[in-house]
């Protein structure tokens, strides 16, 4: 579904992603794992169109998209759940969802989808008229996910959705991701929580300082002794 080839992304002079190639297969959860500063967010933002690579291509269903702006990428069916949630703080929950569906014009479909989000995330329904900035961290994360789903994506880019959440909420977030995937959503999930993300993913990519260290099936990665020591806290 997504094929990244020899991707190099810079912040000014800082070479953050150094020649990365990988694939995200349709219907799968692919997880990007790595420590702070490994380059996970940079990759996700480059796919989302918020950053543009200096070198390399990103193919989406075979077509190059690395030159497109973010507002065009979302129209192709790529949704984005940003790191740190970044809901629109002075818009209500309802309005945040409406903004997620900005490019859609099917009014009744949008309302249907909003109601579906409220079924999946009942906490949001209770707070639908509240400003998003007044929600708890967990609720904001749910809102960031629901907002991205409102664009009706085929592929969901999720950047550390469990970051800073209490263990029970982390569990809930991973359950939601699994559920979305079961219903056919392709997901690229960036995580520092390698243990949980490898459990739900089919494929994993392990990054270190802008490069890929390992790329394999999630199962193989879980059994790899180096990864067990460095990322899974075994041994």
């Amino acid at each position: 579904m997504i094929t990244v080839e020899n991707l190099h992304t810079y912040y000014g002079n800082i070479h953050a992603v150094k020649g990365i190639s990988f694939e995200v297969r349709k219907g799968e959860i692919t997880t990007l794992i790595g420590a702070n500063g490994a380059g996970k967010s940079t990759i996700i933002k480059t796919i989302a169109g918020l950053l543009h690579p200096k070198v390399g291509t990103i193919l989406y269903d075979g077509a190059p998209i690395q030159k497109l702006a973010a507002d065009q990428i979302v129209r192709l069916g790529i949704g984005y759940v940003p790191e740190g949630r970044r809901v629109f703080p002075v818009l209500t929950v309802d309005e945040n969802l409406e903004m997620g569906a900005y490019h859609r014009s099917d009014k009744s479909g949008i309302i249907e989808d909003r109601d579906r989000m409220y079924e999946i995330f009942p906490r949001l329904k209770e707070r639908s008229k509240q400003l998003a900035g007044s929600l708890s961290g967990g609720e904001q994360q749910m809102l960031a996910i629901a907002r991205a789903l409102m664009s009706k994506p085929q592929l969901l880019l999720m950047d550390e959705p469990s970051l800073g959440l209490a263990p029970i909420l982390v569990k809930q977030v991973f359950e939601i991701i699994t559920e979305l995937n079961k219903n056919g959503m392709t997901i690229l999930l960036s995580e520092q929580n390698a243990r949980s993300s490898l459990k739900i993913a089919q494929h994993g990519i392990v990054m270190e300082t802008g490069k890929i260290r390992f790329a394999d099936t999630a199962k193989a990665l879980q059994e790899n002794s180096i990864i067990q020591q460095a990322y899974l806290g075994v041994g």
Partner: peptide, 13 residues
């Protein structure tokens, strides 16, 4: 409020 996120939601900033 947030240029980047707005454009990632499809809003032509």
């Amino acid at each position: 409020m947030d240029h980047d996120i707005a454009s990632a939601m499809g809003i032509p900033v």
